[in-house]
Simulated scan of single mutants.
Amino acid sequence: MTTKSQGCLWQICQVLLFSAGVMSLDCNLLHRQQNQFNWYSLQLLQTMGGKIPLECLQDTTAFQFPEEVLKPKFPQYAKLAVHEILQQLFSIFSKNLSQTGWKKTNVKRFLNGLNLQTVRLEECLPTAGNISFKKLKKYFQSIEDFLKEKNYSTCAWVIVREEAQNCFRHIDTLTKSMKN
């Protein structure tokens, strides 16, 4: 078997092991599983592209993540916020990626991981209560508006990928609040 095939097989095995771990953990250990997922997602985002190219620096923008989301009053609120962030990221990264030049397999792994984690979180979310994340939705809408304004250019996607990495750093903060 060639080295390329072995590498692909190894990555598939990692995804399967990750998936098995995700599905086997109970909700009391969700914060540990979320830490693993964050690390995996950051690795995938980094492999999708390197640093921001110099020609893209003119396109940078300061997206304002709503800081109040990072100070949840209850562990359940943190879970709901992480769920919302993952859903929004899935929505953004599910469209108009043709100009990115990213490997389709990496994008698929990233989207599969987002979907898997979203489903896993849904198993652990409270059934009662409806928390509105208006500011968080507005934040993600500004990212989508930025992509549209830049016609989903390569530079726009590089910047959004960087912002997605920041989102996973925010998820790390929220994950610490998930512990009971």
Rank of each mutant, 00 (worst) to 15 (best):
P72V: 02
M1G: 07
T100H: 05
G7I: 06
N115E: 07
E144Q: 07
L45D: 04
M178F: 00
E149F: 05
C27H: 02
M23E: 12
H83R: 05
V15G: 11
W39R: 12
K71E: 10
I159G: 01
T175N: 12
K73A: 07
Q64F: 13
G101C: 03
E144A: 12
L89W: 10
T47R: 15
G129P: 01
W102A: 02
C27D: 01
I12T: 12
N115L: 12
Y77Q: 06
M48D: 06
I131T: 07
I143C: 11
Q165I: 09
R109F: 06
V22D: 02
T154I: 03
F168S: 03
M1A: 06
Q58H: 04
K138M: 11
S94F: 05
K148N: 02
V107M: 10
F110A: 04
T100M: 04
C167P: 15
M48N: 08
W10Q: 11
T173G: 09
S91V: 03
W39E: 11
K135R: 11
N96R: 10
E55Y: 01
Q99D: 14
N106D: 08
L44A: 14
L97Y: 10
E123L: 12
F93Q: 02
I85P: 06
K79S: 01
E149S: 06
E84T: 11
K4Q: 04
N166W: 07
L121D: 09
W157V: 12
N28L: 01
L111E: 09
K104V: 08
S98L: 15
S132L: 07
G129K: 00
V158M: 12
T173H: 07
D145L: 14
V119W: 06
S142E: 13
S19K: 13
K103Q: 09
N96Y: 14
A164G: 02
T60H: 14
Y152F: 15
D59E: 10
T127R: 07
P66Q: 15
H83V: 00
W10C: 05
S19C: 05
C124V: 01
Q99P: 13
E163Y: 12
Q14I: 03
